[in-house]
Design a protein around this nucleic acid. Structure first.
Lengths: 230, 230
DNA sequence: CTAGCCCAGATAATCGATTTTTGGAAGAAC
DNA sequence: GTTCTTCCAAAAATCGATTATCTGGGCTAG
């Protein structure tokens, strides 16, 4: 019934809009999120904007500087590398758990998610540097489906948090994205998971993430140019 | 200058007070956190209380039910077991990283934190069921010091989040706490870490957490025997 | 000429009041 | 006797305005 934003509370509408804007990179990392402007832009009061910003802070999509307002958190190659390492430390273990606990329902959802991901074009017609929204959603859904059967909602919450942070940093990464064969990596993950090869699947997922980190390290360390210069 | 709450912003004072109250178990899990009462009790307006509650939601110390206010999240044996499993999935890996990356500074802090923990009495005179605040702080500091050298602030943030959730659930757990030899387990962790035995230390930490989960599972099993049997 | 001080503009934090939503109770229809 | 509708009080969400705080530019003393 919620076809447009009609009927939805203003705070929800403003929150989702602002969240999408940050994730889409409409504000630069470090840029101030000015309540005044946002309130005007969304047609709500300062208090509502403040609430949205607080919620974004809770998700890691904004940072609060006391008495100095809110800014978009640091994002970029270095940050992405740290997040990829964290994911590489956590997600393989989750995948092992999921493979040992998953039932037929899980297998079915993994297969469905992979099918959608494989059939969704990664890029839109006029843009070959940023992934399409549809592909990003399918990508998220596939990884989530893989881990869903781990049976631990605390770990799944952690996964969601890291995924969000990862998406924000990827958006601001200077690293080249299209150099890898995501299709093959995802197909391999699906096959190893469905054939219940826990160790091999965990290793493949660790690689999937380590390759990202390594590529970023290569690009980030050589010259070491200052990230912010005034 | 900021020795008492004087000079500190009202929102900070109210936030810290409310956070401590929730962690100390002054509200039951599921109990409503009524803005009206809290505003009156802390001498601040509804807006400030609202901000505090939003921040607590971000930390996992409160839950938001849209249009129905805020409540203390579910806590207890079952929840603690889930959290312990999540920690067992993450922290051993972090410890391995810390042991391979830690320097002399890290060793020194681990040793100091362990000394303080070993010399802090776990219980206060008139209470032998809840750990003392000083011991809880030292316990946290020791575990944090162990993992500090992992070199990944995303993982460390995750640790802090899980620790907080763990503390809340432990407060509401019916499980018996004093049956274990924490002293020996912590000493063993310190020794293995300082002697750089990564695998053994990781295993010891996994045990440290698994024992908790197992004890809870025994007591929480649906058709199991009543907990008052020893 | 430099360093420290002070003032003004801008921005964040807070407040009290108003509007909207919710859950339950009272009453009518079947 | 049961079920559905209608109404109402309590609570959450939102607003506009006020107060406190920070930043940067200009001024004065040394």
């Amino acid at each position: 019934m919620a076809e447009h934003g009609r009927g939805v509370a203003p705070s929800v509408r403003a929150y989702e809009s602002l969240r999408a804007a940050v994730l889409h990179g409409e504000f630069r990392p470090g840029q101030a999120l000015k309540p005044q402007e946002l309130a005007l832009a969304h047609g709500v009061s300062l208090a509502v904007v403040r609430e949205c910003l607080l919620r974004l802070v809770g998700e890691g999509l904004a940072e609060r500087l006391p008495n100095r307002g809110f800014v978009v958190p640091q994002a970029g190659d270095a940050r992405w590398q740290v997040i990829a390492e964290a994911r590489a430390a956590i997600e393989p273990t989750m995948l092992r758990m999921a493979i040992s606990r998953g039932d037929l329902e899980w297998e079915t959802r993994v297969r469905a998610a992979h099918h959608r991901l494989a059939r969704t074009p990664p890029f839109e017609r006029d843009d070959d540097v940023h992934f399409s929204d549809a592909w990003a959603a399918a990508h998220h859904a596939f990884h989530r489906a893989l881990l869903d059967a781990c049976g631990n909602d605390v770990l799944l919450d952690t996964f969601e948090r890291l995924w969000t942070a990862s998406e924000l940093s990827r958006r601001w990464s200077a690293a080249s994205t299209p150099t890898r064969d995501y299709l093959a990596e995802h197909r391999r993950l699906e096959q190893l998971a469905l054939s219940r090869q826990g160790e091999a699947a965990a290793a493949a997922l660790a690689d999937h993430l380590a390759v990202t980190a390594a590529a970023l390290a290569d690009q980030a360390t050589p010259a070491g140019h200052p990230p912010e210069d005034a």
